[in-house]
């Protein structure tokens, strides 16, 4: 069964069979407003946990998206090039950014679960 974990930078990662799917959270897309552009990493890029992996832009803001865990990028969501608004309409689903082969599952285990993340978000307002 897939597990979903969260970071303090508002990324989510869904892990299934050692492959992680990464995107930004509902809270993050709401804060950014209408997404106009997503810059994705290159397939094959290796990154450590917390490395800058992507950039997401609205009209008046740009935010880095960080790798929630270390690993290698295996696939990127090409659909976002033409339809960046998908991140707004379905942040946790069709609006995913990239998939990665996870180097160390221990890093996943140490991320926040849904309940913790919810509490974290509430603490921000």
């Amino acid at each position: 069964m897939a597990i979903v974990k969260y970071t303090k930078e508002h990324e989510w990662i869904r892990v299934e069979d050692g492959v992680g799917v990464v995107g930004i959270t509902e809270y993050a897309q709401e804060q950014l407003g209408d997404i106009v552009y997503v810059e994705l990493p290159e397939v094959g890029a290796g990154m450590t946990q917390g490395a800058e992996a992507a950039v997401v832009e609205s009209v008046k803001a740009a935010s880095e998206v960080y790798a929630p865990v270390g690993g290698e990028v295996t696939e990127v969501n090409q659909n976002l090039a033409d339809n960046p608004g998908t991140v707004n309409t379905d942040a946790m689903g069709e609006g995913w950014f990239f998939k990665m082969k996870i180097a160390d599952t221990g890093e996943v285990a140490r991320l926040m679960d849904g309940v913790d993340y919810q509490e974290y978000v509430e603490s921000l307002s």
Partner: peptide, 12 residues
């Protein structure tokens, strides 16, 4: 495309 520019992106 102002996100390329200094008033938003600053040092980036």
């Amino acid at each position: 495309l102002s996100t390329r520019e200094q008033h938003i992106r600053r040092e980036k």
